[in-house]
Computed example of a mutant assay.
Amino acid sequence: MKKNQSKISIKDIAQELGLSITTISFIINKKAKNRISDEVIQKVEAYIEKVGYKPNSAAQSLRTGKTKTIVFMVEDISDPFFSSVAKEMEKLAFDSGYKIIFCSTDNKKSRAIELISMFKDRQVDAYIITPPEDFQDEIEQLVSENQIVMLFDRFYRDADYNYVVLNNYGSTKRAVEYLKNQGFKNIAYVGLKTELSTLTDRFDGYKEAVREANRENLSLLISFDDVKSEVGNKQFEEFLELHPEIDAILFATNNLAITGLKILKKKNIQIPEDIGVITFDDRDLFELHAPAITVMSQPITSLAKEVISGTLKLLKRKHSIQDKIQIVLDGELIVRKSS
């Protein structure tokens, strides 16, 4: 029967086996190779297994300077896109001996600053951050402090940071070109009023695609805080009334699409007979919607793999000067009945 592991110390193990505390410490911390015989290592490991000893994580952190924790800070961890990536990341990180702390900023700078301050006190090993608006100075501060920082979903064009993002510009152009090839002539874009790279790249991709096709720019940008409000609903309704010629809409986010679909249903606008629809980011409800909604889907598994593997590489090489990890992945157009 295993003893109560909370009462077992390295000193107890050393006394029981007649070995030095240093020897036990080397074996527990995987530093015994070429220092201690295989026979002694096996003896200690067998005893540790027998008594159920678990190293004190706080003490290990003091010895190694690592907490084996990574922060994943995003806009909203409950959003299906971020939660799906988080689920994939968690397993990959765990298999490498790391645990992930998940948190949301609600796209608020003050909240993100407060969270980072707390995580600095906890001495986390790395930060994977989807930065809120106007947050570049805070990212620069983290980097200047030699913190491991990986940007996810958003990046800064004028700064050389590590990042893993979607090819938002190219993916949006492909979505618009697909609608054009399906015979839609007046293609609208509904996005967010923001300077975040994800959304500005999508808007730029739309503008370039309609320009190349000699089509009119029919765009509506809604403030982040108005997306799920009556203000946002009214803006979308007025946009449709102002442009009755619209025969297709590309929504820049899944939340915008949900709002838009409700308004289209309310106004008895038929999909795709009256208006074709494509949105970014797949969700179960888009597949179950009648008709099913065409989406530009982000490669969840690949994004999670790249962001975790990249962060682990940064942790291994720590402060050495090497090329930045900068990954851009393409989206996948999943065609359904709405277009």
Rank of each mutant, 00 (worst) to 15 (best):
residue 5 Q to S: 13
residue 5 Q to P: 13
residue 5 Q to Y: 14
residue 6 S to W: 06
residue 7 K to D: 08
residue 13 I to H: 02
residue 14 A to I: 15
residue 14 A to F: 12
residue 18 G to H: 15
residue 20 S to V: 15
residue 22 T to Y: 09
residue 24 I to H: 13
residue 25 S to K: 14
residue 28 I to L: 09
residue 29 N to Y: 00
residue 29 N to D: 00
residue 32 A to H: 13
residue 32 A to Y: 10
residue 35 R to F: 09
residue 38 D to K: 15
residue 39 E to S: 13
residue 43 K to R: 15
residue 47 Y to F: 11
residue 48 I to W: 10
residue 49 E to Q: 14
residue 49 E to A: 14
residue 50 K to V: 05
residue 51 V to I: 15
residue 55 P to R: 14
residue 64 T to H: 09
residue 69 T to Q: 07
residue 72 F to L: 00
residue 73 M to L: 11
residue 73 M to Y: 00
residue 74 V to Q: 01
residue 74 V to F: 01
residue 76 D to S: 03
residue 79 D to L: 03
residue 79 D to E: 09
residue 81 F to Y: 12
residue 87 K to Y: 12
residue 87 K to D: 07
residue 91 K to P: 13
residue 92 L to S: 14
residue 93 A to S: 04
residue 96 S to A: 15
residue 96 S to F: 10
residue 97 G to R: 10
residue 98 Y to H: 09
residue 102 F to W: 05
residue 106 D to H: 04
residue 108 K to I: 12
residue 109 K to E: 10
residue 117 S to N: 15
residue 118 M to P: 05
residue 118 M to D: 09
residue 119 F to E: 01
residue 120 K to I: 06
residue 125 D to I: 05
residue 132 P to A: 02
residue 133 E to G: 04
residue 133 E to A: 07
residue 134 D to V: 04
residue 142 L to S: 05
residue 143 V to M: 04
residue 143 V to E: 04
residue 152 F to G: 01
residue 158 D to H: 12
residue 172 T to Q: 07
residue 173 K to G: 02
residue 179 L to M: 12
residue 179 L to C: 05
residue 183 G to M: 11
residue 191 G to V: 11
residue 192 L to A: 03
residue 194 T to W: 06
residue 196 L to N: 06
residue 196 L to Q: 07
residue 199 L to Q: 11
residue 200 T to Q: 00
residue 200 T to P: 00
residue 203 F to N: 10
residue 205 G to E: 05
residue 206 Y to D: 00
residue 206 Y to Q: 03
residue 208 E to A: 03
residue 216 E to I: 05
residue 218 L to W: 01
residue 219 S to L: 01
residue 219 S to D: 01
residue 229 S to F: 05
residue 238 E to V: 07
residue 240 L to D: 02
residue 241 E to M: 05
residue 246 I to M: 00
residue 248 A to W: 00
residue 254 N to P: 06
residue 262 K to L: 08
residue 264 L to Q: 03
residue 265 K to W: 07
residue 265 K to P: 03
residue 266 K to P: 00
residue 271 I to T: 08
residue 274 D to N: 08
residue 275 I to D: 01
residue 281 D to P: 15
residue 282 D to M: 06
residue 284 D to A: 05
residue 288 L to W: 05
residue 288 L to D: 02
residue 293 I to K: 13
residue 296 M to W: 06
residue 298 Q to R: 15
residue 305 K to C: 06
residue 306 E to D: 11
residue 312 L to P: 01
residue 313 K to P: 04
residue 314 L to R: 15
residue 315 L to H: 12
residue 319 H to F: 07
residue 322 Q to M: 14
residue 324 K to L: 06
residue 325 I to F: 07
residue 326 Q to F: 07
residue 335 V to F: 04
residue 335 V to L: 07
residue 339 S to P: 09
